[in-house]
Amino acid sequence: MPTGALVFRSATDDDIPALVALIESAYRGDASRAGWTTEAHLLEGRRTDSEGVAAVVHQEGSRLLVAERDGEPIACCQLENRGDHAYFGMFAVRPTLQGGGLGKVIIAEAERAVRAEWGAEEMRMTVIRQRTELIAWYERRGYRRTGVLSPFPYGDERFGIPQRDDLAFELLVKPLG
């Protein structure tokens, strides 16, 4: 495992290929099974692609936060300014580094950054409701389930190929005061 200090920065175009690989490795396929955040049992196919990551990098009011060690991206997350709150998404930690506390550090930095940079008073995210272990992890970080569901985009393979017909996203929120 790399030993250097953890550095946070905004993603650039040069990061896109490495970030696509990182995000894919955390969510889909056999590589994702090395960590605990896999959704390979729920979805097959791709989690994202170069165009999807580039859209986040270039979107006005959006930032793809990269955590790197020794110059190598090991985690990332999307932060989007939505006025009174920020949206948190595309969270990925290298599977072989999951379970060691790195995710807690990344989400804490994301929360600090949106308060400091945008004055966000709340962080929101959507999580596939069937991912109970992941939702429990977010609850331990202070997020609460709202019961507000939004449909999974069935038929749009940009989000993966569902392996069941009851997927939905649940809104989680956390005050940042």
Rank of each mutant, 00 (worst) to 15 (best):
P162M: 10
T96G: 10
L149C: 12
F88I: 08
I161M: 04
A110M: 13
I106M: 15
V93R: 00
G101S: 12
V57I: 15
S50K: 09
T126K: 06
G103P: 00
Q78P: 06
I23M: 05
A168E: 15
D166R: 04
F159Y: 15
Y138V: 01
D30Q: 06
A120D: 01
E44W: 03
V53K: 05
R46Q: 12
D84E: 14
A113E: 14
G71M: 09
P151V: 11
A55P: 08
Q78D: 11
R158S: 09
A75W: 10
Y154T: 04
E44L: 12
E170H: 09
L102M: 07
A5L: 02
T132P: 09
V20F: 10
L149T: 10
I161G: 02
F169T: 12
G99Y: 07
T3N: 07
E72H: 11
I107C: 03
G160D: 01
H41K: 15
G83I: 07
A54R: 15
F8Q: 01
L167K: 01
A26N: 03
P151I: 08
L176C: 02
E24H: 02
W118C: 06
D15N: 02
R33P: 03
A67C: 11
E39N: 12
E51Q: 15
I23P: 02
L102R: 01
Y154S: 04
D165A: 13
A108F: 05
S10V: 08
L134R: 11
S32L: 01
V57G: 10
T96N: 10
L167I: 03
D166I: 10
G142P: 02
V53I: 15
Q59K: 14
L43A: 05
D13R: 13
A40K: 10
L43H: 03
V53E: 08
H58P: 06
V93N: 00
R94F: 04
V114N: 01
L102V: 06
T12L: 04
G99N: 09
I16N: 03
R141G: 09
E39Q: 13
F169P: 05
S32C: 05
P175C: 03
A26T: 06
M1R: 12
P73Y: 05
R129K: 14
S50N: 11
G29T: 00
P95W: 13
R33W: 12
V114D: 02
Y154Q: 03
L79N: 04
I161K: 03
R33D: 13
R115C: 11
V20T: 02
D84T: 11
W36T: 13
L172Q: 05
G142W: 03
G83R: 09
Q163F: 07
S25M: 05
G103F: 06
G61A: 14
R140D: 08
I16M: 07
E60M: 15
E80S: 14
A86F: 02
A54K: 10
E51S: 14
E111Y: 06
T126V: 10
I135A: 08
F152D: 02
P73H: 04
R63V: 13
P151T: 12
L97F: 11
L171V: 14
I107M: 12
M1K: 07
T96V: 10
L134K: 10
T37E: 09
E51I: 13
Y154N: 03
R69G: 00
T132W: 14
I135H: 06
E80K: 13
G147I: 13
A55W: 05
W118P: 05
G103M: 09
N81A: 15
E44V: 06
F8L: 04
L102T: 01
W36N: 11
E39P: 04
D14V: 04
E68V: 07
R94N: 04
G155W: 10
